[in-house]
Amino acid sequence: MSTSPMKQASTTQPDLLYSEAEDELRAAVRALLGDRTDLQATLAGMESGNPYDPALWQSLAADMGAAGLLVPEKLGGQGASHREAAVVLEELGRAMTPAPYLTSSVIATETLLALSGQTGPGGAAAVELLADTAAGRTVTVLAVPLSAAPGDELPTGPAVTAVADARIADVLLVARPDGLYAVRRADAELTPQLALDLTRPLATIATGDDTPGTRLADTATAGAAVRRGRLAGAGLLASEQLGIAEWCLEETVRYTRERHQFNRPVGSFQALKHRMARLWLEVVNARAAARNAADALANGSDDVALSVSVAQAFCSRVAVHAAEECVQLHAGIGMTWEHPAHLYLKRAKADELALGTPGRHKEVLADLVDLPAPR
């Protein structure tokens, strides 16, 4: 497998096709999720406030090794790249699997990778935590709002709101005025928050200066590391959004073939065929944007920030549109709690706000190409 992450700038042409190894990884992840993911169980878990399946996470993160895809082998990982991690996120999006992959295995892992090159105790602590995270022994979550864009400043107050997957984290990466600390979740005060997407719960994390923790980096180093983590998260979130859109389109096509009205499949009506054809074109374009972002991250392209913002600005809207069409074209049943369409719509809407809104990424694009956005 290729080595990971954003090490040196590359000017090679992007490769948007899936490799044989990536197809094999997809098949393995899809088989695992097909055997172990039950949307009805997910609904039941949401009602109880705990949608996570620890056994499934163990199988995916540790047994399959997916948690360490972005981590070089010498640091205890698989030595793969963002392209392979993108495939995992596509499948997690398709199956609507509640798992801390984006938060722990991408955002926190990339942050720790950026800190692992330091000399001194902070770098050593980062390397040790990175190895545990890559092996699936530890779930590490960056304690920042899920909505924070890559370029946002780190929150250094006593409480941080809207932290995703904090409930099942073992370690939190907490920003303080003097740098970034690794804090055990058990030592922090966690207050659950009401979230639109109940498959990715949010919480407020409160810590004080006297909360035990290990200092990983100073303020400047921490800021650069967190920006790298959130940039990778935003780029690979597009692949999760692609998986959502693909499931919604495929499920809608299947349903409209089976559902009859006036003695004909409703999918044969021209108006519906046109809507699904337009959606198919959007999904194809979203796949190109998501793959380009993953490839740019994997190869350290000079245009990585541009590729990520293009992917987020486009894929966010496509995922929401696909989920809306899925609900509408399923008619009455699409509005019920028992049908999973609402899970995909809620995740799509929540993802649209995560790691920077489409509007925020369009502003970034305008700055990158020196074309000021209208005010």
Rank of each mutant, 00 (worst) to 15 (best):
Thr199Lys: 09
Gly122Asp: 00
Leu32Phe: 10
Lys346Met: 10
Asp209Cys: 01
Ser116Gly: 01
Leu89Met: 11
Thr12Asp: 14
Tyr52Cys: 06
Val310His: 08
Val163Asp: 03
Glu91Val: 12
Glu258Arg: 10
Ala108Pro: 00
Ala135Gln: 02
Leu279Phe: 00
Asp370Val: 15
Ser10Trp: 07
Val88Pro: 00
Ala182Thr: 11
Ala245Asn: 02
His339Pro: 07
Val139Ile: 13
Ser59Glu: 15
Gln193Phe: 02
Ala108Ser: 08
Ser48Met: 13
Asn263Pro: 00
Leu154Arg: 07
Pro72Cys: 08
Thr109Asp: 01
Asp367Lys: 11
Pro158Trp: 03
Lys346Asp: 08
Glu352Phe: 04
Ala245Ser: 08
Gly34Val: 11
Leu25Pro: 04
Ser307Ala: 15
Ala350Gln: 12
Asn263Phe: 06
Leu236Val: 03
Thr214Pro: 02
Met276Asn: 02
Ala27Tyr: 10
Val71Asn: 03
Thr111His: 03
Gly120Phe: 05
Leu180Asp: 09
Val71Asp: 08
Ala323Asn: 13
Ala354Gly: 03
Arg278Lys: 07
Arg36Phe: 11
His339Tyr: 10
Ala286Gln: 00
Asp23Cys: 14
Val284Gln: 12
Ala135Lys: 01
Leu345Ile: 03
Ala182Phe: 08
Asp370Thr: 15
Ala99Cys: 13
Thr211Tyr: 03
Tyr101Asn: 05
Leu198Glu: 14
Pro150Gly: 03
Gln78Asn: 06
Asp303Phe: 06
Ala28Glu: 13
Gly49Ile: 11
Leu142Thr: 02
Leu306Met: 12
Met96Phe: 11
Ala296Asn: 06
Ala195Trp: 06
Pro201His: 10
Met6Cys: 10
Arg264Glu: 14
Val106Gly: 04
Asp302Ser: 14
Pro51Ala: 01
Pro155Asp: 05
Thr111Phe: 04
His82Cys: 14
Gly68Lys: 07
Ala290Gln: 00
Lys7Asn: 13
Ser239Cys: 11
Thr12Pro: 06
Ser239Gln: 10
His82Tyr: 09
Ile333Ala: 10
Lys349Val: 14
Leu56Pro: 05
Glu22Phe: 08
Met335Ala: 12
Pro212Phe: 09
Asn285Tyr: 00
Ala322Tyr: 08
Gly229Ala: 02
Gly123His: 00
Gly34Ile: 13
Gly34Asp: 14
Pro374Gly: 11
Ser239Trp: 03
Asp302Pro: 04
Ile107Met: 15
Glu20Gln: 13
Ala224Phe: 01
Thr37Pro: 01
Ser4Pro: 06
Val174Gln: 10
Leu249Met: 02
Gln58His: 14
Ser268Cys: 01
Thr252Asn: 07
Leu365Gln: 09
Leu368Lys: 10
Asp178Ser: 06
Leu32Arg: 12
Ala341His: 12
Gly136Asp: 04
Ala203Gln: 10
Val163Glu: 02
Tyr344Glu: 00
Ala175Leu: 08
Arg200Glu: 15
Gln8Asn: 08
Leu56Asp: 02
Val174Cys: 11
Ser2Asp: 09
Gln13Leu: 15
Gln241Ser: 04
Leu16Cys: 11
Pro5Trp: 14
Gly77Asn: 04
Gln40Ser: 14
Glu282Gly: 00
Ser105Arg: 02
Gly120Tyr: 03
Gly122Ser: 03
Val283Arg: 01
Ala294Tyr: 00
Ile244Cys: 08
Leu329Ala: 09
Ala298Cys: 07
Pro372Tyr: 12
His321Arg: 15
Gly356Met: 05
Thr256Leu: 13
Glu258Leu: 15
Ala108Trp: 04
Ser147Trp: 05
Ala203Trp: 08
Asp197Gly: 05
Val283Gly: 01
Lys349Ile: 13
Arg176Tyr: 03
Val71Ala: 05
